[in-house]
């Protein structure tokens, strides 16, 4: 009856109604995971479960039982930032920073999806692996809203990391 969060086993919350987002934020004080709508509309609550991106506001904490959850806090180690975190700073990929953890978590998983050749709705030729283009990244990141308008910087940051193959 436990979840592994950023490498540490944590007992499940008592209240089965608790979403994973609420459990992370209120229960564990891992407030890097944000809540922008609590209804699946913004992507601010994106975390990784077993490496895949999920909306933690639409996931009950108990559904993550026995699985590995990675949050923004788990992406960097000590003073070393994740390449995406570095690139977001380099490209001014944020203003207020509220959508940022969700964007970065989503991008981490998205780059893997792209590397595995998964197509998207803007992929032209389905018989080959999807190409690494800004357009592909825009489409695949469209579930993560940003109201400050840091879109260009976000896409540039992700594209750079993808091209360096560093993710």
């Amino acid at each position: 009856m436990a979840i592994t969060i950023n490498g540490t086993e944590v007992p499940l919350p008592e209240d089965p109604r608790m979403s994973l987002a609420e459990f992370l934020r209120d229960g564990l004080h891992l407030t890097g995971t944000k809540i922008g709508c609590n209804q699946g509309g913004c992507g601010a609550c994106t975390v990784l479960i077993d490496g895949q991106r999920v909306l933690s506001c639409l996931t009950l904490a108990v559904q993550a039982e026995g699985r590995e959850v990675t949050t923004i806090e788990g992406l960097s180690s000590g003073d070393d930032l994740h390449p995406l975190q570095e690139a977001f700073i380099a490209h001014d990929g944020f203003q207020c920073g509220y959508c940022t953890p969700g964007q970065i978590c989503a991008a981490t998983a998205m780059l893997r999806e792209l590397a595995e050749g998964m197509p998207s709705s803007v992929t032209g030729d389905l018989s080959r692996p999807a190409p690494l283009t800004a357009e592909e990244i825009r489409e695949r990141m469209s579930g993560n809203l940003c109201r400050c308008g840091a879109h260009n910087g976000i896409i540039a940051a992700i594209l750079q990391v993808a091209q360096e193959g560093a993710a």
């Binding site: 890097g32 923004i72 930032l81 940022t100």
Partner: peptide, 9 residues
């Protein structure tokens, strides 16, 4: 405050 923001801190 970039580093704080990208870490979720």
């Amino acid at each position: 405050d970039g580093p704080q923001k990208v870490r979720g801190a």
